[in-house]
Every structure is written in structure tokens, then in C-alpha cells.
Simulated scan of single mutants.
Amino acid sequence: MDKNSNAYTFIFAIIMVIVVAVTLSFTATTLSPLQKENVRKEKMQNILATIGIQTSRENAEELFNKHITQQLSLNHKGEDKTEVNAFEVDLAKELSKPVEEQTFPLYIANYEGSEYFIAPLRGSGLWDAIWGYIALKDDANTVKGVVYDHKGETAGLGAEITTDWFQQRFVDEKIFNDKGELVGVNVVKGYSGGSDKDDNKVDSISGATITSDGVSEMIENRLKNYLPFFKKRQEIKVVTR
């Protein structure tokens, strides 16, 4: 066949497309188990990070199994749905269901002699989903630590929710106000409360008001679903605002 003909060019292009497609498909299929395993271990790292355990991916599972003493799958009444694996619950899918049908994962950790409650979070930022984990101390009120992530927030603005300096602001904040109402931790523009850890507020990210509001709403909206469990477990007086 004449290599300068249109037919040759057309056939060659088809063959190259097929070869590239097969190669990409094979690569994706081959790497898929490794990618899933990396995601699984990264999730363990994030959960552990909320209680102050920083670990490599290689050690994540060992430390997770050591310090996470319970994995609960709660219903809207605070009861454990033992048939559901908490670690495999997909919050993105759960949020599309009525509250009465949702599952609320909760991890109970023991670290350095203290007990912590770790809840996954998911909400909306400026451009797309934001998510993370929040750990509460054994009073089910004081924040031990948080981890946030996002899908498409603006670099240097909303994407700053992933930074240590922002996440550190939440440490020792309270999620209940002085009336026993669950209000979460409000990310407030121009906040001037300094180091006050009892006012349920932290300073927002400059120029990222919508993402900051999304963090506030995410914390309150997700944690209110754990009120039935905390009321039973902690014997604390709480009410829904």
C-alpha cells in the first residue's frame, strides 16, 4: 500500500487509536487495585490525623487497627447497624437519601489513655464538594482535631482549608453552646475572638467566604445526626437548635 495515500494514513490512525486505547485500558485495570488500596490507607491516615497520629501510608493500617477500637454504622436513632461496614460507607451516596435511610459512620479511638469520637464530614464549597473528619474528645463537645479536603476549591483561597494553620484553629473549640445547643464551629469573617475556645467560632479564610461558610454548615449538619448516640453514650444534656 502506498504510504503516501489517504487510505494508508486513515488505517494507520485507526490502528494507533486502538493500540493506545488497549494500552490505557490495560494500565487502568492493572493499577486499579493499587489505587483503591492507596485510597483506603489514605482514609486511615486522615482518621488517625484528627487525634494527632501522623503516620506513613505503610504504617497506617497497623496504627488504625491499634487505636480505632470501634467502627459504628449508626442510623438516625443512634443505633448501630451492625450489618453495615462503617469504613465502606460512601457519604456522597448517603447524602442523596432521606435522613431516615442514611448511615452515619462513627469511629471510636483510644490514644494515650483518652477516648475520642471521629465522624466523617461532607458538604459543599464554592465550586464542588468538601469533606473531612472531625474528632471530639470524650465529652463529645471539645474538638481534638480536624482534617479537611476538597475537590475543586480555588488555590490560595478556599483550598486553604487543607492547611495545618487553618485546621489548627479548630483544636479545643466546642460544638455545643452554653445552652447545650449543637451549633458546631462557625467560621466567621473578621472574627476577633482571639483564643476564646468557648464561643464556637474561628476566623475564616480571607477571600474564601463561601468555602468557609461551607465548612461551618458541614460541621453542624453532619454532627447533628450523632446527637441521639451522644445523648445515650455521654449522658450529656443537649438539645437541637
Score class of each variant (00 low, 15 high):
37 E>D: 15
23 T>R: 06
148 Y>G: 00
52 G>V: 14
80 D>H: 14
101 E>V: 05
200 N>V: 08
178 D>R: 12
137 K>T: 13
78 G>L: 01
232 K>S: 12
95 L>V: 13
48 L>C: 05
139 D>K: 13
20 V>H: 08
97 K>R: 15
52 G>S: 14
166 F>L: 00
34 L>M: 03
79 E>A: 12
110 N>L: 00
46 N>F: 09
52 G>A: 13
28 A>N: 14
203 D>F: 00
7 A>G: 06
158 G>L: 01
228 P>S: 08
15 I>F: 13
99 V>G: 02
123 G>T: 07
124 S>T: 15
125 G>K: 10
77 K>W: 08
21 A>C: 07
66 K>H: 02
124 S>H: 12
11 I>Q: 10
39 V>L: 03
38 N>Y: 11
220 E>L: 08
158 G>A: 03
171 V>Y: 10
81 K>D: 03
100 E>F: 06
141 N>D: 15
181 E>C: 04
33 P>I: 10
203 D>S: 13
159 A>I: 04
150 H>S: 05
214 G>P: 02
74 L>A: 12
133 Y>R: 11
197 K>Y: 02
5 S>R: 08
214 G>T: 07
91 L>G: 08
107 Y>C: 04
6 N>L: 14
32 S>T: 09
97 K>I: 06
121 L>G: 04
197 K>A: 01
169 R>L: 10
132 G>L: 05
165 W>I: 11
24 L>K: 09
211 T>G: 03
22 V>T: 14
223 L>K: 09
30 T>D: 12
179 K>R: 04
190 G>A: 04
173 E>P: 03
71 Q>K: 15
225 N>Q: 08
180 G>M: 07
50 T>F: 09
24 L>A: 08
230 F>K: 09
99 V>R: 11
130 I>V: 15
118 I>Q: 05
177 N>Q: 11
33 P>V: 11
206 S>C: 03
99 V>L: 06
69 T>I: 13
117 F>I: 07
123 G>W: 02
221 N>S: 13
63 L>R: 09
131 W>V: 04
141 N>I: 11
53 I>H: 09
